[in-house]
Design a binder for these strands. Structure first.
Length: 886
DNA sequence: GTGTTCACG
DNA sequence: ACGTACGTGAACACC
């Protein structure tokens, strides 16, 4: 047994440390896990580093220890365990159980004392120990056989102390640390020590006299104040030393063998990590386990799954000649479903395809060099992908459509998209990469880089279909999935591929103009500042404004001065430089993000801009747009709005048609809350903000001023976002008390809305999630946070998501139907953009009247609510010129 | 990679 | 007592 290292861990200390080091973290169902997570990472790391043969974790047990018998105020000032930490202790114990690590706790003793007893026992057996803790008191246990690993910053940095290091750091021996503490005391444990003696003096005295007892005995040698203190407080000093001393004579740990560590029960550990949603940890464990396994001869074998108790391998057949193609084709033809995985990017074309059916996985290489030509392989792939009668399973089918487009293949039979399904099941998770989804739902780690990776992906997609389709039905999202999201995939692909025509000449002109404007603004700003600096740097700008020019600091960020637009507007009166900076900011934004940002993304052949719509990003169900983002093209400010002039119809004579829902979110609120006033206003077709003003300010509609209407409008927005008086007051620039009155006034008049908000939050708390009209779901773990700010955020999300999400449901339904109708009628019109509540079409002149009617009707009737949906139609020669049409 | 700012609905 | 409206993507500076 000697030679083995004994690792003794202070469970309480590390749990607290982990709790504070890891920001709030919880499972999708709201179970707090930050301390468990931090503890686990730390534990795995040190076990891996030290590879101990024996391990024990000690916990405090029972509130009263022998130290209270001696001193009733012991630890009186220490705060109790935080509410969010306490429930994590059972999880920690469960973790240690699955790690097969022995837990030690004894009534009436602190973890410290147990640790002391254990290491002392180990020393008797001549076993080296290492103590892991965040508590410096453990340093007194350091000896030739015992070291201490002390947590430094965070959870991963540890300092190792042996005797030499203690001497170096404190100038005294480990045993003398308790004498030292007898003098100095410890505020956190409420150990008094000797008042007036600090670290410096204590250190000097102990070095000179060797121990506290010796010092007290020879106190007459001392002089002045210290002598008087030692006389007066000598009992207190001795008591302090006793309190600080770790008791080593607890009758535990005679049999060291009970701490022998055999390594974790991996199956149980994976199950626990899965329950706690520790995905990174699952992956690292699976990776570690999967090392060193190789395939067999003949059928290529690939161990991409290591789940639970046993490894699981999957073989695949490479299609590399006419005969293997023929036999594969025969099997594929009869397959009920075919999972597809493609390799290659949008530009360079396909490199390989993998197909998985029940019983067989095929790899189809497409880079030649084998007994099958690329053309023959692609021809077969086209037979499968181009035939709507096959039931194809994909992960991110839209991306596959782009990959296949490069080979002239249109993907037809999309039967299931695992990425979209995973999104609906939990839209809040950070990534929908196949690797992540497979890990979560199949508990497998997909290989990467090797040839076998693609067959593994196809098989994962096939298996995921089973899991996810089940989940979609169980959560009542089948209609949303099969009738909205899945058909939308092809609609979005069509939109992306169509692209938007851009006026490159105008773009270049704008770039030059903006460049000149920025130049002259820069010169003016630099001369007013009296020096050259980078205006784009908030740090440098902050220095100029608040230090050099001494302007008042309005707001701070966590790293320095805030210079955002709100701050600058407030400073605009103080110095003429400020307005110039604001304008400079605006121009730089327009030039870099839009004008110059587009250029590299425009297809040089066609002059088309192809955005990517992401269907799996937002937590609410909205789409997002990227590379470039065409959902945030300026409109509010005239200078920016001009950018819209570069967006043209794709052919001369075509027209841009824009259709946007009027007040869709407030209408949804009216429907969901059934508030009589709100419903009535919409049914009558009233000006909703004016009506709100009339209700809140208690005046007749005719008496509503512009200002009143503006404020009411802000209140209406606020209601949707989860209003606070603070936010409203900031937005409309009235005192907070006044904002508060508006909100109260609103809820007084619109009782139905108030009830709806209360109801939705209560329901969310009960179920852990909220839903939209089409049953789209969002889990809200924040609702159960003990942090007030986080919890309030959860509550606002609870009320906003059903509204924003239902609006997303509605426009998505409209898109699917409009696209279907365009195809059925054989129209040449193209849907080109969606901007949350707006659809934009590129319409040939001869289809204009038909499309106007079609779009308006389909959008307004996408979903029947208790209030009408109203769509405003605009048209023009470019996106800037669009004007309201009847 | 993070923080700040700002464009949109 | 707390910090503050919901949802995005992109550019830039700076570590």
């Amino acid at each position: 047994m000697p030679g083995d290292l004994f690792m003794v861990i202070d469970g309480n200390s590390l749990a607290h440390r982990a709790f504070h080091a890891i920001p709030a973290l919880s499972t999708s169902k709201g179970v707090q896990t930050n301390a468990v997570y931090g503890f686990t990472t730390m534990l795995l790391k040190i076990l891996d580093e030290k590879k101990p043969g024996l391990v024990a974790v000690c916990f405090d047990k029972g509130k009263i220890t022998f130290r209270h018998d001696h001193y009733s105020d012991y630890k009186a000032h220490r705060k109790g365990t935080p509410d969010d930490l306490r429930p994590q202790f059972p999880l920690l114990k469960k973790l240690l159980e699955t790690m097969r690590i022995t837990i030690l706790e004894e009534d009436g003793y602190e973890a410290d004392d147990l640790i002391g007893a254990l290491t002392t026992a180990a020393e008797k057996h001549n076993i080296s120990s290492v103590i892991v803790t965040g508590d410096r008191d453990a340093l007194q246990l350091v000896s030739p056989l015992t070291r201490v690993l002390l947590t430094k910053k965070g959870i991963t940095e540890l300092d190792e102390y042996d005797e030499g290091k203690v001497w170096e750091k404190y100038g005294i021996s480990p045993e003398q640390l308790i004498d030292f503490k007898g003098l100095v005391g410890d505020a956190s444990d409420n150990i008094p020590g000797v008042p007036g003696i600090g670290e410096k003096t204590a250190s000097k005295l102990i070095k000179e006299y060797g121990s506290l007892e010796e010092l007290i005995e020879k106190r007459n040698d001392l002089t002045g104040k210290i002598r008087a203190k030692m006389e007066e407080f000598r009992e207190q000093a001795l008591l302090s030393k006793k309190l600080a001393t770790i008791i080593r004579e607890i009758p535990v740990a005679q049999d060291m063998d009970r701490f022998r560590w055999q390594g974790p029960d991996y199956a149980e550990l994976l199950a626990l990590f899965s329950e706690l949603e520790f995905k990174t940890l699952i992956r690292s464990i699976l990776n570690r386990q999967g090392e060193g396994k190789k395939g067999k001869k003949g059928v290529a074998k690939n161990d991409f799954e290591v789940a639970g108790a046993g490894a699981y391998t999957v073989g695949y057949i490479t299609i590399d000649d006419e005969s293997s193609l023929k036999s594969a084709a025969a099997k594929i033809k009869d397959a009920a479903k075919i999972a597809l995985a493609l390799e290659g990017d949008r530009k360079s074309g396909l490199k390989a395809a993998a197909l998985s059916i029940a019983g067989n996985i095929f790899l189809l290489p497409l880079e030649g060099g084998r007994g099958l030509s690329r053309a023959a392989a692609l021809a077969w792939l086209k037979e499968i992908c181009g035939d709507p009668d096959f039931r194809l399973l994909c992960h991110n089918a839209k991306e596959d459509m782009w990959r296949l487009k490069a080979e002239g293949i249109k993907l037809e039979g999309i039967f299931f998209d695992t990425m979209i399904a995973a999104y609906l099941l939990n839209p809040a998770t950070s990534s929908r990469e196949l690797t992540e989804v497979a890990l979560e739902y199949l508990k497998i780690v997909l290989p990467s880089g090797i040839e076998a990776a693609l067959p593994a992906r196809a098989e994962a997609v096939r298996r995921l279909h089973g899991e996810l389709s089940h989940g979609i039905e169980e959560t009542g999202m089948d209609r949303l999935y099969y009738e909205v999201e899945l058909p939308l995939v092809t609609v979005l692909a069509e939109m992306e591929m169509t692209g938007v025509k851009v006026d490159r000449d105008r773009l270049n002109e704008m770039s030059l103009e903006l460049g000149e404007k920025i130049q002259s603004l820069s010169a003016a700003i630099h001369s007013m500042a009296g020096e050259e600096f980078n205006i784009n740097s908030t740090k440098q700008l902050g220095y100029i404004l608040f230090e050099r020019l001494q302007l008042p600091v309005i707001k701070r960020t966590k790293t320095g001065y805030s210079t955002d637009a709100a701050v600058l507007e407030e400073l605009a009166g103080s110095h003429e430089i400020v307005a110039q900076v604001l304008e400079h900011r605006q121009m730089v934004k327009l030039k870099s993000t839009y004008v110059d940002g587009f250029s590299p993304l425009i297809d040089p052949e066609t002059g088309l801009l192809h955005t990517t719509f992401h269907q799996d990003v937002t937590a609410t169900g909205r789409l997002s747009s990227a590379e470039p983002n065409l959902q945030n093209i300026p409109i509010k400010m005239e200078e920016g709005r001009k950018i819209r002039k570069v967006f043209l119809p794709r052919r001369e004579g075509n027209i841009i048609l824009s259709a946007d829902y009027s007040q869709i979110e407030l209408r949804i609120l009216a429907h969901m809350s059934a508030d009589p006033l709100l419903v009535e206003a919409f049914r009558k077709g009233e000006d909703i903000h004016a009506r709100t003003a009339s209700e809140v300010f208690g005046v007749r509609m005719e008496q509503v001023t512009r200002e009143m209407r503006g404020r009411a409008k802000a209140v209406n927005f606020g209601i949707i976002y989860g209003i606070s008086d603070f936010g409203l007051s900031r937005d409309i620039k009235v005192p907070r008390r006044e904002a508060k009155l508006y909100i109260e006034g609103y809820f007084n008049r619109y009782r139905g809305v108030k009830n709806y908000i209360d109801r939705i939050v209560a329901e969310a708390r009960e179920k852990g999630y909220v839903t939209t009209l089409l049953n789209r779901r969002r889990y809200l773990p924040d609702l159960f946070s003990s942090n007030h700010t986080v919890r309030s955020f959860g509550e606002r999300t609870a009320m906003n998501t059903p509204i924003q999400g239902t609006a997303a449901d509605i426009i998505k339904m409209a898109m699917v139907r409009i696209q279907r109708e365009i195809v059925e009628r054989g129209l040449a019109t193209k849907m080109i953009l969606q901007v949350h509540d707006e659809l934009i079409f590129d319409v040939p002149l001869e289809e204009f009247e038909e499309m106007k009617e079609l779009v308006k009707t389909r959008m307004e009737n996408a979903l029947a609510l208790d209030v009408p949906l109203v769509v405003d139609m605009k048209a023009g020669q470019n996106w800037y010129e669009v004007k309201v049409i009847k």
